[in-house]
Nucleic acid binder design. Structure first.
Lengths: 245, 245
DNA sequence: ATAATAGTGTCTCTCAGACACTATTAA
DNA sequence: TTAATAGTGTCTGAGAGACACTATTAT
């Protein structure tokens, strides 16, 4: 028996599931870390996929609540970390028939760079929303839910690549920050030391910083503090670090 | 009245529409062109959105036919152009409540670089699948269907940006091609002349080309012909063109 | 004064751009 | 031989890396 349809298009075909996942990076303890979320355990007869596995924070788009995909990503980031205005960039989208056992599904992956007050670093290991900050290499070593190993690897690759020629690491620091602090952050993410003189020339010549007073450490000379002029976007340098060899 | 559900997750919420759009670029007549497709005219009482407007080629993901989003994009590209193995890269995804009058919708945008035999350049201005190659600036000037002005602008920006530091324009040429031909293609896309000596050094040093005999023009000296070693991906140069100024 | 950290100066090497030069082909 | 195009050589300047130097602060 066929339904009769008048004045509408044929939209009654199967629609894929639509989700958003957020890769939330931060730097702590000399390490690049990512926020992972544990899939709920099997609580009753309902078939939640990958029970107990670690996964990227994310979930279904709520068409009643989210006006855009970016809204949805910000909502999930806010819910997990309380951060409201971080660096947030779309990484890409993945979709296939078999990435989710519940059916043909798509995910829109965003990646965020945040800095958190130390208090927020406490792992939440209780209840249904268990989450944890994990060193990126460690997170990749174990099998994650869905295709999240692939998504996370892509996010790490994109971040490491962009750090070579952009001001992205500035978003890992609370403002104002000093150039030595910024250099340290670059070195953590790149995993190698960077020459101080070349680094400072590059940052100051790029012109994305503005002075914001002085900042003294526990010991040694005080440093000039800086703020980024335009918090909304990163700056690209004309060359990558370490061109030769 | 509530349905009783056993042994299944709650997936009976509203799902967004899921589409794929493809921005297909090519170079002809000294111009960067894009393939545009006309939305069907209003044929009966069914409400096809944006009747008669120009749009990027695309459409709904067919969960029965497409295994992945990339499959879907390749299927649409193949259907429009007959091209099977071009350069195809994901640009990003857009999704919001109001970009499609039929409801909350998402689109996954891919961009393709193709070279076509001159015969395929004929515009198909008949029937329901009218399509046309249009200069990119011209295509952007008129109001397109949906948010396609924005999608196209993003694709053009990404292409122009990547051409500054990658071997992408090689995909606009049928193999084998000569360095003067490749340089000409760069100049068309960049919209400015490029120094011959610097260009040749850059291309040959990048090491993505392999020789493939000689190729003579109608007049003048013959040129060495080249093929790209790895047709699957573009090469990134360590610097952009024209750093200074 | 010393330790510790912030910041600068100088040298060199690489490489892109500019541009003039040589090489090869057809008529 | 000339026109047209392909390809090379040489100079210069910008800028990154290396690394030694100076500057400022607390003890």
């Amino acid at each position: 028996m066929k339904k009769t349809r008048i004045s509408t298009t044929a939209l009654d075909f199967d629609r894929p599931l639509v989700t958003v996942d957020v890769v939330i990076f931060s730097v702590l303890d000399d390490t690049l870390k990512v926020l992972m979320s544990r899939r709920p355990a099997r609580v009753d007869e309902r078939a939640e996929p990958f029970p107990g596995r670690w996964a990227l924070p994310g979930g279904f788009v709520d068409v009643a609540q989210d006006c855009t995909l970016l809204d949805c990503a910000m909502r999930k980031l806010q819910a997990k970390t309380g951060v409201t205005a971080p660096y947030l960039e779309q990484l890409g989208s993945w979709g296939s028939a078999d990435r989710d056992p519940r059916g043909w599904s798509t995910t829109h992956v965003y990646f965020a760079l945040v800095h958190l007050p130390p208090a927020a670093w406490a792992s939440d290991t209780t209840g249904l929303n268990e989450s944890r900050w994990t060193a990126v290499d460690e997170a990749l070593r174990e099998p994650l839910a869905f295709d999240h190993n692939g998504l996370l690897a892509a996010a790490i690759a994109r971040l490491r690549n962009k750090v070579e020629y952009t001001s992205l690491p500035a978003f890992f620091l609370p403002e104002p920050f000093t150039l030595p602090q910024l250099q340290y952050t670059y070195e953590v993410v790149l995993g190698r030391p960077v020459d101080k003189s070349a680094f400072r020339k590059r940052m100051l010549d790029a012109g994305f910083l503005e002075e914001a007073g002085m900042q003294g450490g526990a010991t040694g000379r005080s440093a000039v503090a800086y703020r980024v002029k335009d918090r909304a976007q990163a700056v690209a340098f004309p060359r990558t670090f370490k061109v030769s060899e």
